[in-house]
Design a protein around this nucleic acid. Sequence first.
DNA 1: GTGAAAGCGCTAACAG
DNA 2: CTGTTAGCGCTTTCAC
Lengths: 363, 363
Amino acid sequence: MAEALEGRRSTRRTATLASLAAELGVSRTTVSNAYNRPDQLSPALRRRVLDTARRLGYPGPDPVARSLRTRKAGAVGLLLTEALSYAFRDPVAIQFLEGLALACEDNGSGLLLVPVSPEAEDVGAVARAGVDGFVVYSMPDDDEHFAAVLERPVPVVVCDQPTDVPDVDRVGIDDQAAMVELAEHLAGLGHRQVGVLCMRLSTDRNDGFASVSRQDHARYEVQRRRLAGLRDGFTAAGVDWGGVPVVERFDHTEAAGANAFDQLVERHPDVTAVVCTSDILALGALRGARAAGRDVPGDLTITGFDGVPAAERAGLTTVRQPSLDKGRAAGELLLDRGDRQRSRTLLLPTELMVRATSGPPAR
Amino acid sequence: MAEALEGRRSTRRTATLASLAAELGVSRTTVSNAYNRPDQLSPALRRRVLDTARRLGYPGPDPVARSLRTRKAGAVGLLLTEALSYAFRDPVAIQFLEGLALACEDNGSGLLLVPVSPEAEDVGAVARAGVDGFVVYSMPDDDEHFAAVLERPVPVVVCDQPTDVPDVDRVGIDDQAAMVELAEHLAGLGHRQVGVLCMRLSTDRNDGFASVSRQDHARYEVQRRRLAGLRDGFTAAGVDWGGVPVVERFDHTEAAGANAFDQLVERHPDVTAVVCTSDILALGALRGARAAGRDVPGDLTITGFDGVPAAERAGLTTVRQPSLDKGRAAGELLLDRGDRQRSRTLLLPTELMVRATSGPPAR
DNA sequence: GTGAAAGCGCTAACAG
DNA sequence: CTGTTAGCGCTTTCAC
């Protein structure tokens, strides 16, 4: 792969620490000290070492050799659900990344984005990553890449899912409780005919209605729990969950949200509230609803989940979760680990944001 | 720094390839082959090796040791102007990152975000990064981190700035020509009283008016060239550039754009057009203008630069640049380098997007 | 299909 | 303040 990296610059065969030492007539230790422990040698000698290094074109200690010797890479690996580039398209992931980057820079650690091939086939990238630990962002159950991470003898912190992995710290939110709260809000408003739009429940594509069984066996724990929260909340209000239509979309885009909305209302024109398990889907649904001439919230209630900036601009009723804090906490959990023995789970607070897209059902 | 990473998992002292070989009674080569060249040994033996590895808890070849031996890290380093986390706050940087990530994942390379300390003091992070090459995103002239990158004997690709670095490939746009085109558009509309809002011109904070001398000596080449383009374009239309107020802001936020706008119009209430060197600043200016009761574009023209999604939503007249393509091209330039001898510069096209915030001056 | 030899380039005791 | 000693864990010709 990287054999392509043979430019002019890399061709410049460089001197090594040993050759520099030989040239100077000092020991390797001295040269090493000149770089790593300036206080261990006289300023004059240090200057001479550094000057000679410059003259010989010695670029300083090789980072990989140093890592091998010191047993630390100075970097945190990040494993993401989707292809690497997806991280930069999803506003929630971006906020998470920002928080994680903050923790890394506080610590002087690099952040290595591990390239997981789209087809999730080559687990090798995980095995090849020179890192001191991994942060894993929202992986489905039974993911091979995640399994590969667990093979590595380094600490791991998971964000969101999967939960309950032995010896692994986790940071997340209480997805289920957050959705119960939202359901109560909606039920309190009087909604009984509801429909749901959710993200993918499995790694196999299913763009359409999801049965209760499929919901219960979703490989994405976060979606599973959000749906479970809705079920609990609405069931408590007397709604028969088995009769609640749930439309699933594999792609997480506004367009997907919009056409999922269309699919939902075509079959269930009577719903008074459309609950979406993400803001992106909700924003799409909102667009779809308006395109269909529906008045939100007068005629129809639509809600999201996440609390992204665009949701705020759109006045979307949603559940806000602290994505940036999750990233920072994940980084800190990984980096600042003291003598902690047991693995721990950090649950961050969520907040129901009642805004302008929810109201009582039209009568 | 990373000594903190001593969790339970990392404590599990792992077997090495050598100890595995000893246990199996085969040579290290054989074990190595079992992992790296499955075709070099019998399936039966390979199975035995892998099984024993599992039993002994051998996690597979150590990536750092392998990198030392093979002389490749399997990762690209990314150096950014600002603190690492800033990258996730700037929509242009995010798009660039997405493109770069795309190129990396195509190549199976990791992407290492190098932690540059906010105070830009410790250049060590660059020296310590185990990477096969660097992509440098928009650095000021004479930056120490960039200098440290050039010390490393690996290929380097610069995006945007600085230009004209020997032996370094570059991808960018023609900032100056793009701005000439915008100036011509505005001059063609009839604007002669213009004001400018620009990003930081130097690493020292100057939130206020920038003299022509300061403009000409800006350490940020991109800003320098955009201003030069405006100067050329407006001068050609008969405007005395020396009389054109240029307000500089260190922070790149909408809030900064809004108050820069206020500062500009307070001193120069007669301007009919406010040209901003970025969309973020322009969006802020737009907000400031509306807060001040100005009608855009009826009463005042405002333009941006970059073509971010928010600018499109706002109907902002701007210059679109292909940020994602820049990222991808930078990655490809670094990764796909054939036998190329000379360094090359790739200039991508820009496009003037005339939308709803520019019009003829009020009369 | 398998093994022996030879480092990759560096750092960390520890002794002087 | 400087040098000696000993690897860190792995891959890769090149014979057998």
